[in-house]
């Protein structure tokens, strides 16, 4: 558990960071919160020559409400994200997913940008990024470029970030009125990574005197169902136009023990098999299409495909439940 030797630099500006990286060459690595990188070093699964620590750069930290989007600095910690009123008001899905990341200790160190730059499909934020079509602001010696979420995640632990590039900030588009959100994470213990996760954003029209409630648009993305986060496009298509009959409420948040002591598995009223939203259940049946989930100690691919369907249904139900 002792890393191989490496050099360490702590630049005092983004510009310095970019040039330090350029100087250090291919084997240099950006260090942000270190919650993913340091374990790799300690297990000697990575041998960087230099770590360029951007974790304390003021210009990479903070959350701003800008026109049409929320700008989150890459080195903003998960904990800061969770405490941001802007995030809760303008992009609640980010808060919902971040709240499920690890534990308070990790959330105080780990960063928003680090979670995305790491490109781990088991992380909770990549799926949110693709569901919300976030934009990645990337700096390199040749200047700034912006990468769309769908082009950012290339493979397992591989992103569009080239050597020498630093993720400076992420723009989270504001979706406007009528949207409901949910992040459904299935994990075995409170601190564990997602076996499977589902991020859902659904726009519903009608209700409260305005006629039947109808799904206008749905965005669904899956965590840990392949080497990158996956948009469940078939589910999204199948959801569009679904009428949400009756006063049905959300369903069976089948949280494992990790969800905290006290309450039981929550079967929020009567949406058992065949009940209320069978159309959403049907739409969810396609959730695992086109995925290639991993096999590991927490689940086989077959089980993960099954979970993706069940959890997608639950995420859609919760996202369409009026607050």
């Amino acid at each position: 558990m002792i890393p191989a030797p490496f050099d360490y630099v702590r630049p005092s500006s983004l510009e310095e960071a970019v040039s330090a990286l350029a100087d250090a060459g291919e084997d240099a690595k950006v260090l942000s919160g270190g919650q993913s990188l340091l374990p790799l070093l300690r297990l000697r699964l990575a041998y960087p020559s230099v770590l360029v620590d951007i974790g304390r750069l003021p210009e990479l930290r903070g959350i701003r409400d800008e026109d049409g989007h929320v700008l989150i600095g890459a080195a903003t910690t998960h904990d800061e994200v969770l405490r941001s009123p802007i995030v809760h008001a303008e992009c609640p899905l980010v808060a919902l997913a971040t709240a499920t990341v690890a534990d308070p200790a990790v959330r105080h160190r780990g960063t928003f940008g680090g979670s995305l730059a790491h490109g781990d499909p088991a992380g909770d934020l990549p799926a949110v990024a693709v569901a919300l079509d976030m934009e990645f602001v990337v700096h390199s010696p040749s200047g700034e470029r912006v990468v769309a979420a769908r082009d950012f995640f290339l493979d397992y632990l591989e992103t569009a970030l080239g050597p020498g590039e630093v993720l400076a900030a992420v723009r989270v588009p504001k979706l406007g009125e009528g949207w409901g959100f949910h992040y459904e994470k299935f994990h075995r213990t409170a601190q564990a990574w997602a076996t499977v996760g589902v991020a859902a954003a659904v726009r519903v029209s009608g209700g409260a005197g305005g006629g039947p409630r109808r799904v206008e648009e749905a965005r669904v993305a899956l965590t840990n169902m392949g080497p990158t986060p996956v948009r469940a496009t078939q589910v999204e298509a199948a959801c569009a136009g679904v009428e949400l009959n009756g006063s049905a409420t959300g369903y069976a948040a089948a949280t494992p023990n990790g969800a905290g002591p006290g309450a039981g598995l929550d079967t929020r009223n009567g949406c058992g098999p065949g009940g209320g939203h069978s159309a959403l259940r049907e739409a969810s049946a396609a959730a695992a299409e086109g995925t290639s989930p991993p096999a590991d100690l927490h689940g086989s691919p077959e089980y993960r495909r099954h979970l993706a369907r069940v959890l997608t249904h639950r995420a859609l139900l919760s996202a369409t439940t009026p607050a």
Binding site: L43, T189, A190, Q191, A192, P256, N257, P261, L297
Partner: peptide
């Protein structure tokens, strides 16, 4: 295969009932 705590799962207080 279970050489780390990510793979060898131990419950914490959050995983246990009162």
């Amino acid at each position: 295969l279970t050489t780390t705590m990510a793979d060898y799962l131990l419950p914490s207080a959050a995983d246990l009932p009162e």
